[in-house]
Structures are given as structure tokens and as C-alpha cells.
Computed example of a mutant assay.
Amino acid sequence: MTRHATRTSRSSRPLLVTTSLAALALIGSSCSFVGADGADGADGAGDAPTEEGSGPVVLLTHNDFSLPDEVVAAFEEQSGHTLDVRPTDGVGNLVNLVAEQAGKPSGDVVFGVDNTFASRVLGAEALTSYDGELPSGVATYALPGDDDGALVPVDNGNVCVNIDDTWFADEGIAPPATLDDLTDPTYAGLFAVPSAATSSPGLAFLLATIAEYGDDWPTYWEDLVANDATIVAGWSEAYFGEFTQGGSGGTLPIVVSYDSSPAFTVDKKQSATSTSALLDTCYQQVEYAAALDGAANPAGAQALLEFMVGPEVQAALPESMYVFPVVEGTELPTAWATFAARPETSYEVDPADIEANREAWLVEWTDVISR
């Protein structure tokens, strides 16, 4: 559901920030609590096709892809294919790699393309259709415009503003609830924001403000700057470095994070959490997997896609990659079911509009926050 707001008058003043136009090349750095090590994945294009039911499946992904060893072993046992994971630093770089290698990919499957970048790989004609059946609930997350069904939804989550409930209670200050509230002087100097130019959740938060304020979004950002928002390179810097509940002595009780984040700030008794997601500030992200056109192992690619929406992967997603499963009825960990509240509606921007305007929006955003 896309929401819009009327134009509002705002003021502005400068703020020192840690980003620049040069950072635009790093768009989309992915942010989860864990990661996986590996090679860049740019090599290997043009490998000879493998026999059906044998050979490795090469997975191109971001460097936060992580599944338990026993889940990977289950795929290899069930399919007869080994899994070769090749991470790339950031979703933006992953998408660029896939688009540049269209028709001659260095892998068989891509995972981690989200709805803010998916139209780029579709436009590059780098993908081929999935020929399997989708379990119940998965089609809900299909990307508009993907008429061939190439992108298979695997997980979802919402980028939301999070707050330190304990800090606000101790200070006797009513916490914010909406995007508008974040520009109120009550919250001056309390908000940590990952860069839209170098972070996937940072870009998602920018898109939320574009969905809310339309053409007036730069004025809203001028007000955030005027209210002493702290803008840092990525989600890890914002959450772990600046946020009061991030564990590193941060001093800011408001941060851009995820709707799942409160499930990780529960007490030892698993009876309460110290943080909340502001559910009126959320932008939905969906991650997709797809078989690559020209893949050396097309049979293995289809087998991996089927496995990614299977019960083993879907059940592992919350605790291994800190995202929600897309298959209906997948059981969540207790802390998630109790404390990871989800919004009834989320901000959305049409993928075609994102593709047409992303670079211009980021140039303007960088100009606004650098004044």
C-alpha cells in the first residue's frame, strides 16, 4: 500500500555527514546480523554445461548470505548437486554484476536481489523463468512487472525506525511514532540513519520518505538534517555504533533498522524486549532468487530455487539471516512470534519508478544532506 502526505513547510541548516557522491557506486550494502565469507564471484563465465543431476550449483549472492551447514548438506543430499557460494559486497554490486554478465553469467542462481533493485536485472534480461510450483503464500510477494515469473520470493522484512524504549522511559520523554515526529525538536540529535547511498536499509528509508512526501521529500530531509540526525555509512555503524541498544556504548535512542530487530533485544528470561519498531514508518523489502540465463547448470539452478522456498530454508531464515520467511505457515522462533511485531501496511514505491529515478534521487539526497 502506497501512502502520500501533503506538502509541509520546513526549515533547514547544515550538518556534517559521512558520505559523498563517490559513495553512489556502493549503493545497496546489505545489512544483516551475520555474514558469510567467500570470493567475489566474477570469474567462471562460460563454463561448460553440466550433466543433469550432477555438478556444482554456483550461487551469486551478497556477503550476508548464511545458512546452517545442515541445511546446505540437505540440499546437496537431496539434489545431487554441491553448492558453491560466491558472495559480492553489497546488493548494488551484486545487481551490477548480474546485469553486466547477462547471457554469460559466472553463476547459475542469484539470491539477494531485493525489490529496490529487481527491475534492473529484469531490464537487463539476465534471468530465466522458474519452472517449479510456488508454495502457499509465496506469490503474495511477487514483483510487479515480473511477467515471466523469473524472480522467486524467498524472504521479506520491513525497514522501520526503531527506538530504545528503556531510554525514553528513563528520560521521561514520550517516544516518536511517525516520520513527521522525527523532525520535532524534542528528538533533536537522537536519530541515527544509515546512508541511502551506501546501505540497503538506508535506501529503503529514503524510499519510505519519498512514498510519504512525494516531490517534497527533499524538504523533509532538510528538516532531519536541521534536527541533527546522524548519518553514517551503513546499518551496522548506525545500529551497533550509534544506537543505545546496539551494545557498543552508542548514545542515540532512535535508529533505522528492521521490524525483526526487537526480537534481538529481549531479556534473559525472554519475557520482554527493550526496543520497539515504529510500525508507521516501515518500508517492505523482499529478497528474490532467480536462475541466470545462460547458466552452466540450469537443472541445478532450478533445484536450488525449489529448495530455497522449501521447509528447511524457510524455517532457517529468521535465525540465520534475520528475515521473515515467505511460505505461509512457517513456524517462527518464539522471540520473533512474541516481539517482532509487523506493520499492517508498509510504504511502497513502484519498482519501475525506482529504476527510472534511483540515481537522480540519490544525487539529490546527497546534495541535501551535504549542505
Rank of each mutant, 00 (worst) to 15 (best):
M1H: 10
T2W: 01
R3H: 14
A5S: 09
T8G: 02
S9V: 13
P14L: 03
P14N: 03
V17M: 09
T18E: 15
A23P: 05
A23Q: 14
L24R: 10
A25P: 05
L26R: 07
S29V: 07
S32K: 08
G41H: 02
D43N: 05
G44Q: 05
D47M: 09
A48D: 14
P49D: 13
E52M: 15
E52Q: 10
S54Y: 14
G55V: 13
V58D: 06
S66F: 15
P68M: 04
P68I: 00
V71E: 09
V72P: 03
E76F: 10
G80P: 07
H81T: 03
R86K: 06
D89F: 15
V91Y: 01
N93Q: 10
N96L: 09
N96C: 03
G112W: 01
V113E: 02
V113M: 04
N115F: 01
A118F: 03
A126E: 05
L127N: 02
S129C: 12
S129T: 07
G132C: 14
S136W: 03
A139M: 13
A139Y: 13
G145L: 00
N156C: 11
N158G: 10
N158W: 14
C160D: 00
N162A: 06
D164L: 14
D165N: 09
T166R: 06
F168N: 07
D170N: 01
I173E: 13
A174Q: 10
P175L: 08
T178V: 15
D180S: 11
D180K: 03
D181M: 12
T186F: 02
A188S: 15
A188M: 09
G189A: 01
P194E: 07
S200E: 07
P201A: 08
P201D: 02
A204R: 07
L206K: 00
T209D: 12
G214T: 03
D215A: 15
D215K: 13
P218V: 00
A226L: 12
N227T: 11
V232W: 13
A233K: 05
W235M: 03
A238N: 06
F240Q: 02
F243R: 04
S248I: 00
S248Y: 02
G249T: 10
T251P: 12
V255C: 13
S257T: 11
D259G: 13
P262F: 07
A263T: 10
F264N: 12
D267G: 15
D267V: 15
Q270E: 15
Q270A: 13
S271L: 00
S271H: 00
S271R: 00
S271D: 06
A272N: 11
T275F: 10
S276F: 04
S276K: 00
S276V: 04
L278D: 10
C282P: 15
C282A: 14
Q284M: 11
V286S: 10
L292I: 10
P298C: 04
A299L: 12
A299K: 05
A303K: 01
L304W: 11
F307D: 07
V313I: 06
Q314T: 14
A315F: 11
E319N: 11
F324Q: 07
G329W: 12
P333Q: 02
A340W: 11
A340T: 08
E344P: 06
E348P: 14
D350R: 10
I354M: 01
E355L: 12
R358E: 12
E359I: 11
W361H: 06
V363T: 09
E364R: 15
T366L: 06
